[in-house]
Design a binder for these strands. Structure first.
Lengths: 350, 350
DNA sequence: CTGTTAGCGCGTTCAA
DNA sequence: TTGAACGCGCTAACAG
């Protein structure tokens, strides 16, 4: 194990120490670090050796000070499902480490209004190099305005629609929801309940539209009593599913807009002594951890959250390279896929 | 909405701008900011006004450079349950914002060995002001050694036992597990299954010990076939609970060491057409999100994760104030509480 | 109570 | 190809 060479009080080695040990000037060390101008290979090697010997790494504060960069990016989130944040973090963290960046998490509070006051000051104080917005913050106009005013590069994850020139990443909610609905229909379900997400999430409307499109495509009527509102929370879906199961013409399948709500449907079904999937098929969306944790395992749509996060970082990198913001928003959609597990079955013959 | 006063290209206001506008020197501004020496109230007010007018906030890089501080602290974690991280984050974030710190999340990889190489370099590179360790990283001796060598203040969350002089926070796993076991016993259960956590988590042994102590206290024998191993994951508990339910003398209640594993017990019970809690009572530990998400809602032990996180931050603050590390480790235990929900019932008469 | 000088560690600009 | 100055924004020391 390499011991720190500086024995006295710890105080990390500086570029000067490295320079001295290598017998060059600090400037030369800086050059090999930043790979800018060419340095004679021999010199370069000597410097590299000294860096290693001293276990040196540049001081971010100092570097940031001269370059006007902080090497930190922020993730703005607001109370999404726990599984969602966790997976997002994984993807982000990967890329961050590769790029030498650090990630700062900022919770925006439950409502947009909670933030309106502080966002400006917060942005000014933090000196982030970039920001990543997760839904529903992606659609907070106050946040986006503040970001734009501060001329801070940012990328939105799953925004409702492209606004301004901010790059964004999303999955194809419409297509995936339609795909799941088709799956249900192919299994013989005709009366399908749907639980909506909250209007402030862009994905809600798209998933609902996908559901309706597939139904229309199959010439199946969508009875409006079968489409109820939720807000992506387990609790909201407890009521919603109760309403659905209380219908005189009970649906044979229920498609919930996310996994948490699907979990609640299953709970309600159990309470009604209904077997899933024998008496009722249940489908979710997102494939967060809970999907394979509850019983029966959820048939759902796997949203590539981690890949989306990685892509978001890549988009940020591009924004830094390009000095100016691009003319039009660059949007990347990463497809989702159907994950068939145990909560959906063919409709029983009647 | 207050518009930024500097109209040209954005480039945040500096302390000099503020000083100029207030008609004082930069030093004075610095003083009102850091509240050190007293500044004449009138002057102070003028400065404050200028700060507000310019929407000024100090540049962390510059400040960090002179104070040799980064204003960032790191959270080292390793694949704990998603609910656990999420709640931890909430508590940490609260305190961080209050204290003007930012939080950096570092994933340590699934195994300690994944880290051994990089930890030194990583620590040197990051210049964190402090680190918070979550289990099982709290017990990684290589990490703790590196931290100690770097003379970086750190606090451990739920370590196996106090090692060295690092402050720590924990909940009373032993007492809580014993309490839950007593609850089961009071409801008439005598044959109780127990699913252990992984040995690398300090909490595992303590929870098991609490269980055994309560059984002994009630003069109830613990049949070793009723104590099976898990690793805090849902999947591990699928096997474990299968083994328990296959016993010729099946337990009437199962106490799983955490909620994820309890969820798997419920799934397995359902698969065996066993009703929870009528045929089998199931208890968990942690009260993470899943506890109130699955059906039936889990009777569990609420571990005050958020409060523990906040306490961890407070401990760090104290470490900063005290120039030297304290002689003996300061440990704080925050009690857990029983949360009675629907997965446990009295034992049916036979 | 307030201003001045100096320097934190690094990258830019210029000259050698 | 390399080095010497200077300054980024801020605060610790010391004046005044």
């Amino acid at each position: 194990m390499p011991l720190r060479s500086r024995t006295r009080k710890q105080s990390a080695a500086t570029i000067k120490d490295v320079a001295e040990l290598a017998g060059v000037s600090a400037m030369t060390v800086s050059r090999v670090l930043n790979d800018k101008d060419k340095v004679r290979p021999e010199t370069r090697d000597r410097v590299l050796a000294s860096i290693e010997a001293l276990n040196y790494t540049p001081n971010l504060s100092a570097r940031g000070l001269v370059k006007s960069r902080s090497f930190f990016i922020a993730l703005f989130y607001n109370n999404p499902s726990q599984g969602y944040v966790s997976e997002l973090l994984l993807g982000l963290l990967n890329r961050c480490r590769q790029a030498g960046y650090h990630l700062v998490i900022e919770n925006c509070g439950p409502k947009e209004s909670d933030w309106e006051g502080g966002i400006d000051a917060m942005l000014a104080a933090s000196h982030f190099d970039g920001v990543i917005l997760t839904p529903p913050v992606s659609d907070y106009s106050s946040v986006r305005a503040a970001l734009a005013e501060a001329q801070l590069p940012y990328v939105c994850i799953a925004p409702e629609k492209e606004i301004g020139a901010a790059p964004f990443v999303e999955t194809d909610d419409f297509v995936s929801a339609a795909g799941m609905t088709r799956h249900l229909i192919e299994l013989g379900h005709q009366r399908i309940g749907f639980i909506k997400g909250p209007p402030e999430h862009g994905s809600s409307a798209k998933r609902e539209a996908g559901f309706r499109a597939a139904m229309r495509e199959a010439n199946l009527p969508v009875s409006e009593e079968c489409v109820v509102s939720g807000d992506y929370s387990y609790r909201s879906s407890l009521e919603a599913s109760e309403a659905l199961l209380a219908l005189t013409q009970r649906p044979t399948a229920i498609f919930a807009s996310n996994d948490d709500m699907a979990a609640a449907v299953i709970a309600t079904a159990h309470r009604h002594a209904l077997s899933v999937p024998d008496d009722l098929s249940v489908a979710g969306f997102d494939d967060t951890q809970i999907a394979a944790t509850i019983w029966p395992h959820l048939t759902t749509v796997r949203q590539p959250i981690e890949a989306m996060a990685e892509t978001a970082m890549d988009l940020l990198s591009e924004a830094w390279k390009a000095d100016r913001a691009p003319e039009k928003a660059q949007g990347i959609v990463i497809p989702s896929e159907l994950v068939i597990r145990d909560s959906v079955a063919g409709r029983k013959a009647e």
